[in-house]
Design a binder for these strands. Structure first.
Length: 408
RNA sequence: CUGGGUGUGGCGCAGUUGGUAGCGCGCAGCGUUCGGGACGCUGAGGCCGUCGGUUCAAGUCCGAUCACCCAGACCA
């Protein structure tokens, strides 16, 4: 991308209505634009980060046999009524609206009901199972109070995966596969070190669920962990009985705040039963499908990573999700034409600052935007037949041969 | 939802005892600059969140309402 051609601009001042670091930096660097509280637009750079996060998740889920779909955001109340979840007393974060003809609609806060209902059209035999279906989808939740930049929005992007099985053992097996896939995903996103699989309350049909919590000062959850972090649990289940359950009684636990980036549930029959998702087994008898669900907050992850990877100068994206790998600056007539030559055919990995502004401004924006590597080609470096390569994270520069650079 | 705070050009702000809006950044033009957010000159851009009231006169006073921020509660 040529910076001279995009509508996005960086801001020197801190927006008045952002106080969380992720909101401030992402806004200043031109990744997001706020529409209203908890509702954001993703600009070209922000969209690329989101897409990079999605790609990593997609690769890992596809590798364990998941299939991607895209379901509707508008919700027919009927299946939700069957599970009792269309009630505002049950689920108090619905956005609801009416059809021109008078009927009521909801904007999906999650998708257990519609996917269970949808798959009734496709699952009839044990031969159809297991099945793992996921999507990246905008969810709507009418939060009483949106806050913390993109960490807690009313409209946000989520990956939700649902699995369907003929037995509890099969559900357990797949659940383990997802746990492992999630571990790989968070590693690749650069937050593996600080992300813990955490015991949390499980709802009606299973004792516990698991959350993936990333340690973060502005996180909304409180978690407890033992000395070697082999047992980590959410405050909501930090009770003597649970510690006994986990064979961790008497151990010393420390407290910290964390942001929930993923949550996995063994639903079993919670939705398949009331919605009638059944199959015929080998003996020609009707059985109810076992289900699991597995979420990852995609837009929240972008905020969490922005919070974690940043310094006083701006963002510092991990290479795996950075919108571009290189930030290119040409200085002087010859420097600029060499930069043009390098940029040619590398539009997808190079953010080329071809604006007619002074170098200092470009350097400042390169740092604010958090592009992993900055390449500067100037008449001065060309005199040595080199270009300067600077690492955003360490700030260290090295001179590389122009001929080597052009090989990249 | 409870408590506190804030709404004035694209962004950040000032605006006195009520008298018809100003600064910095940004933006446009010209010139000088050009490896760490340069500078000079010229210029464009706002019925002051919204509605109502008081007044000869309201950004300023009164009432209502909406939005945004923070803390808390809530978070299927």
């Amino acid at each position: 991308m040529r910076l001279s051609k995009t509508f996005v601009k960086t801001l020197r001042t801190v927006p008045k209505d952002e106080t969380a670091k992720n909101g401030i930096l992402l806004t200043r660097a031109g990744y997001i634009h706020k529409e209203m509280a908890g509702v954001y637009d993703y600009l070209p750079l922000g969209l690329r980060v989101l897409e990079n996060i999605k790609s990593i998740i997609r690769e890992e889920l596809n590798s364990i046999g998941c299939e991607e779909v895209l379901m509707s955001a508008l919700q027919n109340p009927e299946p939700w009524t069957k599970t009792g979840r269309f009630s505002d007393q049950e689920v108090d974060i619905w956005f609801k609206t009416t059809l021109a003809s008078g009927g009521e609609l909801g904007l999906a806060p999650t998708h257990e009901e519609p996917i269970t209902t949808m798959l009734k059209s496709y699952i009839s035999s044990y031969k159809d199972l297991p099945l793992y279906v996921y999507q990246f989808q905008t969810k709507f939740r009418n939060e009483l109070r949106a806050k913390s930049g993109i960490l807690r929005g009313r409209e946000f992007l989520m990956k939700d995966l649902y699995s369907f099985h003929t037995s509890e053992e099969d559900l357990d097996d797949f659940y383990t596969k997802v746990e492992q896939a999630y571990g790989r995903i968070f590693d690749r996103l650069g937050i593996g070190e600080d992300t813990y699989e955490t015991f949390a309350s499980g709802g009606i049909f299973s004792k516990y669920s698991h959350e993936f919590q990333t340690i973060l000062p502005v996180g909304e959850d409180t978690i407890y962990y033992n000395t070697d972090k082999s047992v980590v649990l959410n405050k909501e289940v930090y009770t003597p009985e649970v510690l006994v359950d986990l064979a961790a009684e008497g151990q010393k636990f420390d407290e910290t705040t964390a942001a929930e980036v993923g949550n996995i549930f063994k639903l079993k029959f919670k939705y398949s039963e009331p919605l009638g998702l059944k199959y015929i087994d080998e003996n020609n008898s009707q059985k109810t499908v076992y289900m699991g669900c597995y979420g990852i907050g995609v837009s929240r992850l972008m905020g969490v990573i922005a919070e974690k990877y940043s310094d006083e100068k701006g963002l510092v994206w991990p290479e795996t999700i950075a919108p571009y790998r290189y930030y290119l600056v040409g200085i002087g007539e010859n420097g600029i034409s060499a930069a043009e030559e390098f940029y040619c055919d590398r539009e997808n990995e190079v953010l080329y600052d071809d604006r007619n502004v002074r170098p200092g401004e470009k350097f400042a924006d390169a740092e604010l935007m958090g592009i992993p590597y900055r390449i500067v080609i100037s008449d001065k470096t060309l005199a040595e037949d080199t270009a300067e390569l600077t690492d955003r994270r360490t700030g260290e520069s090295q001179m590389i041969k122009i001929s080597d650079l052009m090989q990249y």
